[in-house]
Amino acid sequence: MTVTTRKDWASDQEVKWCPGCGDYSILAAVQLLMPEFGIERSNTVFISGIGCAARFPYYMNTYGVHSIHGRAPTFATGLALTRPDLDIWVVSGDGDALSIGGNHLIHALRRNVNIKILLFNNQIYGLTKGQYSPTSEIGKVTKSSPFGSILSPFNPISLALGAEATFVARSHDMDRNHMMEMMRRAHDHKGSALVEIYQNCNVFNDGAFNEITSKDKRADNLINLLDNEKIIFGQNNDKCVAYDRENGVKIADVSSVGEDEIVVYNSKLDNPALAFAISRLASGPYSPTPVGVFRDVQKSEYGEALRAQSQDAVDKKGRGTLEGLLGSLPTWTVD
């Protein structure tokens, strides 16, 4: 157990996000959380692609790589397969992870390799100065959609669940403790983990999450998923998530449904159907939206399984040597 403080985890680099950017609070949450794990900074690696979020590794006093657009999960996967001793975090944005890097994201999740992916979702392209992203809502007016976006956005949680992710959570940049709890759970999870963080871009998409994250609206519009607890929310605890014949689940008034119709959440279910149904309750951050851990199940971790195969080969054949390598070929000898 190594004792560190938040300060130890901050690099000497000046942070260069726009003043007021949600990324600051995520950085603070990460730097506050790291000491809790009792790990060495030298065994921690932050890897990113391209975008505003991708500058994150420069600000962590750990090992770090700022790679190329969308490819951070691939780089992290190669590192995780060969260095199980490291804590590996991928920091990505909605463009990086869901557009140019979409293929890598779904396969990194499917593979269940030991990397923790923080997806800063601000529903806009920030670094390229304000084009619509794969999570922008229909109708979004941006520089590249002056007449409004006509594309359906991805729901990152639904996407991750469809990609066989074993750990999927959502948080937002206005609640440090909740972010830290989601990251803590992700860190403790064996395998790949995705934490979607609603992050405000105050320059190109300011207030995108106001409907659900502003202090006065949270109680009514944030649905906090807690294992083994009934999903009840609202200022007066008068709303709930109840089972629904057509859609699996629905939002209802507590008073209008029977006690046993209210969903008791369980992120550990092997079948992701309930998690998926819950992820569909909101089509965007404008109506009651679930946050918390959607899914947290234990499956074989790819790196561990691969290493087990290697160990098995060594057990059966012995550790290979150069002489053995050439000696195993069918040969003939000329005297």
Binding site: I47, V65, S67, R71, P73, T74, F75, A76, T77, G78, L79, A80, L81, T82, R83, L86, N103, H104, H107
Partner: peptide
């Protein structure tokens, strides 16, 4: 792309 990305990640790790 993922193939070479993973290879480079492994190289980074030694």
């Amino acid at each position: 792309i993922a193939g070479v990305g993973a290879a480079l990640g492994a190289s980074y790790g030694g």
